[in-house]
Nucleic acid binder design. Sequence first.
DNA 1: TAGATTGTTAATCGATTAACAATC
DNA 2: TAGATTGTTAATCGATTAACAATC
Lengths: 203, 203
Amino acid sequence: MTRDIPEISLQRLPIYLNYLKSLPEGDKYISSGAIAAALGMGEVLVRKDLAYTSSSGRPKVGYVRAELIAAIEEYLGCNKKKNAVLVGVGGLGSALLSYGGFSKYGIDIVEAFDSDPEKIGTTVGGKAVRGDDELASAVNKYGALLAIVAVPAVAAQQVCDCLAASGVKGILNFAPVQLKAPESVVVRNIDVAASLAILASLL
Amino acid sequence: MTRDIPEISLQRLPIYLNYLKSLPEGDKYISSGAIAAALGMGEVLVRKDLAYTSSSGRPKVGYVRAELIAAIEEYLGCNKKKNAVLVGVGGLGSALLSYGGFSKYGIDIVEAFDSDPEKIGTTVGGKAVRGDDELASAVNKYGALLAIVAVPAVAAQQVCDCLAASGVKGILNFAPVQLKAPESVVVRNIDVAASLAILASLL
DNA sequence: TAGATTGTTAATCGATTAACAATC
DNA sequence: TAGATTGTTAATCGATTAACAATC
């Protein structure tokens, strides 16, 4: 499913999607100019991004909102169910297990893993917490291609190795370490503290 | 404190910093080539990024690791104490209140706010939770220029307005909405679900 | 000295914006 | 029709990479 969309355009699709969904039901049409104005971006950029999803608008009227939503969702694969596992049931991990926001993208966190015996066997956010030793078999059982890593920095590489070996193809890493993974595994990082620090340094 | 560093270079500084800190104490020198190889990037890019921090290396030997760390920390303002407030003490907000990772950038979350009477008056992660009505006075009292917004999407704009009116200059927003704020307020977004969806669509 | 590495200038690459023809 | 809006092609802008001189 490799498309030729630049990743930076791909990153904007959820922004359009959220905005379009937030519009009142009554709005049948929306123009690229209106979207651009609402989101503070250029209107040509909006049209180019939307063109990747193969949605098309009509001159003079704009885009049909419902069609646009459907096209973006289709393009992002929201309609395809995807299983994910989460490793590291600390504060952040627990919060993500209880967070309902993944479902709109068709993503389901099926199970969680931790090395702490105190946590193993419990349920967080309706998801069972198992020992790290069961990770590989669970990835296999659920056909999980996605994983969230929310363990401490020192443990992250080891978890990453295990996930990659288990067949996970995409890792969203919250630990402040650059993970080494095989080429076939895509890693993206979220570092909340660093993001806030960068923001602070812009002021 | 507006510098002419591209934001994308700024975003990489914490990555270098984390890596440099993770090296064994014994390593006195490190070359841009070694950093680049470890982090999977081009070595010229590393040198350019590091040059913004006014750190400089010596031909043949590379950079003094400790100096480089100090220069990046100085540049990022890690040594300047900065107060932040957090709004929305749900799962994610609670996790962030308990997270110790902000301190390495000199950031302290001083107080938290929520509209839920059940939460007001409690303590989470050692921080007092107050009512939203006390937000403005707290921002003032602590001179907080930074805020984390971790409220539901429907409440985020209102919180943003309040923060901007209170004098906050930087907002890290976890709600999946594009916030409208005055030019003088910098907003950056983290959408965990969207990030995972984007990752999934790359596979 | 010779060689490794830095720092800078020029070339390339990719993304955004401007211009504009197509069209409803 | 006239005008608004799309979609595309060309121009601009900015970031990365390549080339290379400086230097320890």
